[in-house]
Amino acid sequence: MWDSFPNVRRYEPEPDPVDTRLGVRLAELRAERGWSLGELAERSGVSKSTLSRAERAEISPTASLLNRLCGVYGRTMSQLLSEIEAEAEPAPLVRSAGQPVWEDRAAGFVRRSVSPPHPGLRGELVEGRLAAGADLAYDRPPVPGLEQHIWVLEGALDVTAQDVEHHLDTGDCLRLRVWGPTRFRCAGPDAVRYVLAVVLP
């Protein structure tokens, strides 16, 4: 159809600015290590085509994809996302409007970095929201031995770690160190909202 109108330009949506900055940073991290796309694919278990499209902001990376890359690059997801923010040094007081929000639409997952990573601090605070039926699996921790405290604010959440499933209702808190795969699943008919406190080992 479009070939019949040579002077009409096909509309192509602009890449999301966050995805663009994220793609640039991912490419920088790979270049800093002198890795080819093939080498990164072997280390992360992600295909070269997916890695290439993520670096060029042709796709919006999923939480699972970012988790794999964070594991390879030795940083938490919040650290990676904070590196693409305009401010090099987050202020001691983080206003609500200045808390970075990232969304994995395909997985039904939204994360707000309430207290982003800061130089000299080992902890960070994240608000997570999973839509009803959402099921999020990570095949490895971004940093082995990462300390996590998961506090459910609203709804119900099933968390699986070290092959043990923990059911959390509103007000419950789970404390653990992460060494292997984890899974977060919305366990109720409505969305679940929780706080995730992360402390580097």
Rank of each mutant, 00 (worst) to 15 (best):
M1P: 02
M1S: 07
W2Y: 13
D3V: 14
S4Y: 15
F5N: 07
P6S: 09
P6M: 08
P6N: 10
P6G: 03
N7G: 06
R10D: 04
P13V: 15
P13Q: 13
E14L: 10
E14A: 07
D19H: 04
L22S: 04
G23A: 07
G23L: 06
G23M: 06
V24F: 12
V24L: 13
V24I: 15
R25S: 00
A27C: 09
L29H: 01
R30P: 00
A31C: 08
G34R: 10
W35M: 02
S36C: 07
L37Q: 00
L37I: 11
G38K: 07
E39T: 09
E39K: 04
R43S: 01
R43A: 02
S44V: 09
G45L: 07
V46K: 01
V46G: 03
S47E: 02
S49A: 09
T50M: 08
R53P: 01
A54D: 03
R56V: 08
A57I: 11
S60Y: 06
A63P: 00
S64N: 06
L66Y: 04
R68N: 03
R68T: 03
R68F: 05
L69S: 00
V72F: 10
G74W: 12
G74H: 08
R75P: 04
T76W: 01
T76K: 02
M77K: 03
M77E: 03
Q79C: 05
Q79I: 13
L80K: 05
L81F: 09
A86R: 14
E87W: 13
E87T: 14
E87D: 14
E87K: 00
A88K: 09
E89F: 15
P90N: 11
P90T: 10
A91W: 14
A91T: 13
A91N: 10
A91F: 14
A91K: 13
R95Q: 10
Q99N: 04
P100W: 11
P100H: 08
E103I: 15
R105D: 08
R105H: 09
F109W: 09
F109T: 06
S113D: 10
S113I: 12
V114N: 02
P116Q: 09
P117E: 08
L121K: 15
R122H: 12
G123Q: 14
E124F: 11
L125T: 11
V126I: 15
V126L: 05
V126E: 00
E127G: 02
R129W: 10
L130V: 12
A131R: 08
A131W: 11
A131G: 01
A131V: 13
Y138L: 07
Y138E: 00
D139W: 14
V143I: 12
V143N: 04
G145E: 05
L146T: 05
L153M: 09
E154L: 06
G155M: 02
L157P: 02
D158S: 06
A161S: 07
Q162L: 12
Q162W: 14
D163H: 14
E165D: 12
H166F: 07
L168H: 03
D169T: 13
L174R: 00
V178Q: 03
W179E: 12
G180T: 14
G180M: 09
P181G: 02
T182I: 09
T182S: 02
F184A: 06
F184P: 02
R185G: 00
A187Q: 05
P189G: 10
R193G: 05
L196Y: 10
V198N: 00
V199F: 11
L200K: 07
P201L: 14
